[in-house]
Design a binder for these strands. Sequence first.
DNA 1: GATGAATGAGTATTCATTCAT
DNA 2: GATGAATGAATACTCATTCAT
Lengths: 223, 223, 223, 223
Amino acid sequence: MTHRSLTPSPLSTAPVRQRRKDARPQELLDAALALFVEKGFAATRSEEIAARAGVAKGTLYRYYPSKDELFKAMVRENLSVHIAESAAQAAQYEGAIAELLTQMMRAWWAKVGHGNAGVVCTLMMLEARHFPELARFYVDEVITPSKTLIGGLVERGIRSGEFRQVPLEATVHMLIAPMMHMLLHDHSFGDLDGCGQTMSPEDLLDAQLALLLHGLLAVPQGT
Amino acid sequence: MTHRSLTPSPLSTAPVRQRRKDARPQELLDAALALFVEKGFAATRSEEIAARAGVAKGTLYRYYPSKDELFKAMVRENLSVHIAESAAQAAQYEGAIAELLTQMMRAWWAKVGHGNAGVVCTLMMLEARHFPELARFYVDEVITPSKTLIGGLVERGIRSGEFRQVPLEATVHMLIAPMMHMLLHDHSFGDLDGCGQTMSPEDLLDAQLALLLHGLLAVPQGT
Amino acid sequence: MTHRSLTPSPLSTAPVRQRRKDARPQELLDAALALFVEKGFAATRSEEIAARAGVAKGTLYRYYPSKDELFKAMVRENLSVHIAESAAQAAQYEGAIAELLTQMMRAWWAKVGHGNAGVVCTLMMLEARHFPELARFYVDEVITPSKTLIGGLVERGIRSGEFRQVPLEATVHMLIAPMMHMLLHDHSFGDLDGCGQTMSPEDLLDAQLALLLHGLLAVPQGT
Amino acid sequence: MTHRSLTPSPLSTAPVRQRRKDARPQELLDAALALFVEKGFAATRSEEIAARAGVAKGTLYRYYPSKDELFKAMVRENLSVHIAESAAQAAQYEGAIAELLTQMMRAWWAKVGHGNAGVVCTLMMLEARHFPELARFYVDEVITPSKTLIGGLVERGIRSGEFRQVPLEATVHMLIAPMMHMLLHDHSFGDLDGCGQTMSPEDLLDAQLALLLHGLLAVPQGT
DNA sequence: GATGAATGAGTATTCATTCAT
DNA sequence: GATGAATGAATACTCATTCAT
C-alpha cells in the first residue's frame, strides 16, 4: 500500500467510452435537474433529458428505469451532499448563537441558494405530492434534521441567557421561512419584471436575520 | 313519497335545470380547484373535473375552451374576491400599526389559510412557470399590492415612531414569508406523519408575529 | 308481456352513432380475431386492429383496456357460443353411440372447423402460455367438459355392449386429437403448397372416425 | 487450495476458452430453445438467450445475425438429427407392420417426446406463420417424409393382407395426430392443474395405438 | 345546450441490433 | 473475438379536444 505506481493513472488510460460511461449518471441527473426546474416534472419529456445530456432516448433507460426513478435519483444525489454538510456544520460552529446562526444562514445560502441544493429543495416542494415516498425521505433527511439543528441552537441561546424566552417552534419557522420563501418566489416569479428585490438576496437575508435577532436577543445590540 | 309533484320544488322559482346551469361555472371551478390541489395540474384529467362537477366531459368545454383556460379562470375567480377584500382591509383598519398588522395577518389566515384563496396561492406558486401570463397577473394583482399595503403600514409605523428604523423590504418579507411557507409546507408535506406542527397554525402565526414585532418595536412590550 | 308495440323498433329509431357504438365491440373482436390468426398475438399491433375495425387507435381502448384484455374478450366471446351449444348437444342426441359420435363430430366440424370457434381453439393452443388465466378458463369451460361429454358417451357404449372394453382416456384422446390436429396443421401449414390433404376435411374426418369405430365396436360392421 | 497451477487443467488439451468457444453455437441454440419454449419467440429477448448461454448480448450476434436466424438455426439443428434418424429407422425395422408401427411410435416418443425434437415440433407449429421459409423446410423435411414413411408401412400392411383395406391418408393422420396432440396439449396446458392425464404418455400412446390397430387389423388380436 | 363516442397527437418505455473498446 | 454501452425504430397506451346526436 506504500506506493501504487503500478496502477496507471486512471485519467490517462481509461478508454473514452468508459470515461463517458462513468460520467453519464451525473450528466443525466444534471440535465434532468435543469429541465425539471425549467418546465416542471410532468412537462419534461424523457427524450429531452437524454438529448440535453447528449445521449439517445434509450440510453437514459440504461441508467434509470423510469422518469420517476430519475427524479428520485436526482433529488437524492443533490441532497445527499447537502445533508452531509449540514450535519458537519452542526458540530463545527462555536461562539455566540446569534453570530452562529447568522453565519450558518449565510453559508447555507451561499451553498444552497446558488447551487443545486436550493433548486432541489424548490422542486421537492413543488412535486412532493407526486412522490410521497420521496417526500418522506426529504422530511426525514432534510427537514427534520434542519429543524432539530436550528432548534437546538435556539435552545442553547435561551439557556445561556443570550436569547429571550421565545417559543421554539415559532422561532425555528421564522428562521427557515424567509430563505425558503425567497427560493420559491424566485423560482416561480423570478423571471417576471418587477418582482426582483431591490436588495441582493444576501443583503436581504442579513437584514431579515438582524430583524429577527433583534426580537430574539435579551439585550438588543445596536438600534 | 306517495306522489312526486310534477311542479318544481317550491324553493325554486327557476326550473331545476336552469338553476344548475347557472351554477355550472362555479361548480366546475370548485371541482377543478380541488383536483388541481389534490393531484396537480398536469395529473388532473379534464374528465375527472367534469365528473366531480357532475357533468359530462363535453360540457366542461362549453364553459372553458381548454384545461389551461379553466385553470386560469379558476385562479382569477378565487383571487378576485381576495384582492377586493384585501384592498378594503387596508383602508378600514385604524390604531397602532403593530395591532393592525396582527389583526390583518390573523384575518388573512382565517380567510385565506383555510379557504380557497390559500390553496390558490399555493397552486400559483406550483404552476406559475406554466402560466407566465397568469403569474404576471398574480404578481400585479396580488403580490405587489400586498407588499405595497404591508410596506405602507410598516412605513407608517416607522414614521410615527412606533417602529424602529428598520429596512422596509426585509421587513415586508419577514411578514409575508412565514404564512406563505406554512401554506406551502402544509400542501407538500402535510399528509406525512411527523410533519405537523405541535401548535395550531393560528398560534404559530401569532407567536411568529410577536417575535417579529418585538424586533420591530422601538419600545418592546412584555418580556 | 303480451305485446310490446309501444317500444319503437330499435332498427329504425336508434341514431346511427348509437347503432355503430353497439356494434363496435363485435367489430373489434372480429378484427382482432382475424389479425391474431393472421399474424399471431404479439405481432399484431393494436392500431392495426382498430384500423381493420374502421376506428381510430384510441377507440379500441374505450372498449378494451388493453391488448391482453381484448384477446381475452375475443376468446370468451367466440367460445361462449360454442360452450353453450356443446352443452346442448350433450343432452339432445339419442340412439346408437357410434352413430351419435359420428354425427357430433360432423356437427362440431361443420360449426367449429369452419367458423370462428375453430380458429379460437387454435389460437388458444398457440397463446395459452401467455394467458394462463385464460388457459385455465379454457380448460375448465371447454376442454374438460368436452372430455367429460365424449367420455360419457364412450362409457355408455361400453356399458350397452356396443363397444369393446376399451380404455376410456385413450379413446377420448383418439376421438379429439384428429380434429384438433387438422385444425392446427391447417393453421400452421395450410398456406404452403403440398400440404393440403387430397381428401376434404369432412371426408377425412369421416374416414378417421370409421377407422376408430371399427376398433371400438364389439361387432365391427362392414369390412 | 494452496496454490493455483498456472497451467490449464490436465483434463483439457485445448485451452478452456477455446473449448467454450467451440461449444458456443450449441449452447446458444440450447438456451434459445429453452426460452422459446418457455415464453414463445416474440416474448424472448435476445439478451436473455445470451445470458442463459453465459455470454454477452453482442456475442450472440457473432454467431447468428439476428433473432430470426437464431430461431431458424435452432430448428434446423434440432430437426436435422431427428430427420436422419427417422430415415434410418424406416429401413432397419422388419417384421409385422403392426409391431413395427408400435415400436416406431414408442421409439419416436422416447426420443422426441422427451428430448428437444418434440418441443421443436411444438415450436414449429406455434411459429410456423412467422417463418414461412422454415415452415416450408419443416414440411418438406419432416412432415412429408414422415407421412411417406408411415404411409408406406401402412400400404405394406394392406398389401400383405395384415391390414384391412383402409384409406391411406386417414390412417396416416390417425397415427400421427394423437402424438402431436399430446405434445401440443402438454405444452399449452400442461402446467395447469387438472389437465394432466392419469396415464403416462407412454401408456396412453400404447393404448391409442392398440385401439387403432384393432381397427386396422384384418384379424383383430386379443379382445 | 348536454352528452359521451370518437379521435389522434403525444409520450414513456422496450429491445433488436450495432460498434467502439 | 468478446463485450456491453449506445442507439432509435417500434408500440402500447393516454387524454385533451371535437362534434354528431
